[in-house]
C-alpha cells in the first residue's frame, strides 16, 4: 500500500499534482509523472481529484498545470498544501475586475 501511486502530475513544468485518492495529513503521497515518481509529504487533507503543491509557490505567482497557467496565488503555498479556490484565482473571465463593458 505504501508504494501505491496516489497522485498524478501532468507535465514536468507543473507546480501541482492531482490526488487520485483521499490523502491524509502527514502521509507521503507518491505521484506519477510519466515514468518518474514524485514523493510529497502531505500537510493537510487533500480530497480525491483536488490538487496539492509539489513545489513552493509564492504569493502572486502563476500556478502551472498541464504545463500552462491555470491562475495566480493569493498567498504563499507550501509543498504538500491544498491548492484550490481558497488560495488561487483564475485570470480570465474576471468581469469583477474589468467591470461592466456594456
Amino acid at each position: 500500500m505504501l508504494n501505491e501511486i496516489r497522485g498524478i502530475v501532468m507535465t514536468k513544468k507543473d507546480d501541482v499534482a492531482t490526488a487520485l485518492a483521499d490523502l491524509e495529513a502527514s502521509s507521503v503521497a507518491r505521484a506519477r509523472l510519466g515514468n518518474e515518481v514524485i514523493e510529497t509529504e502531505i500537510k493537510e487533507p487533500i480530497p480525491f481529484g483536488h490538487k496539492y503543491a509539489i513545489s513552493e509557490i509564492r504569493k502572486g505567482e502563476l500556478v502551472i498545470k498541464y504545463g500552462e497557467v491555470i491562475g495566480e496565488t493569493l498567498e504563499n503555498i507550501g509543498v504538500g498544501e491544498l491548492v484550490h479556490v481558497h488560495n488561487i484565482v483564475g485570470l480570465r473571465g474576471r468581469g469583477d475586475k474589468v467591470g461592466r463593458t456594456r
Binding site: 492531482t18 490526488a19 480530497p47 480525491f48 481529484g49 483536488h50 490538487k51 498545470k65 498541464y66 500552462e68 497557467v69 491555470i70 491562475g71 491548492v83 484550490h84 479556490v85 488561487i88 484565482v89 483564475g90 485570470l91 480570465r92 473571465g93
Partner: peptide
C-alpha cells in the same frame, strides 16, 4: 466542478 477539484476556468479549459 469546484467540488470535484477544478479551481479556475483556465484549468477547466486545459482539461
Amino acid at each position: 466542478n469546484i467540488k470535484g477539484g477544478i479551481s479556475t476556468i483556465e484549468e477547466k479549459s486545459l482539461g
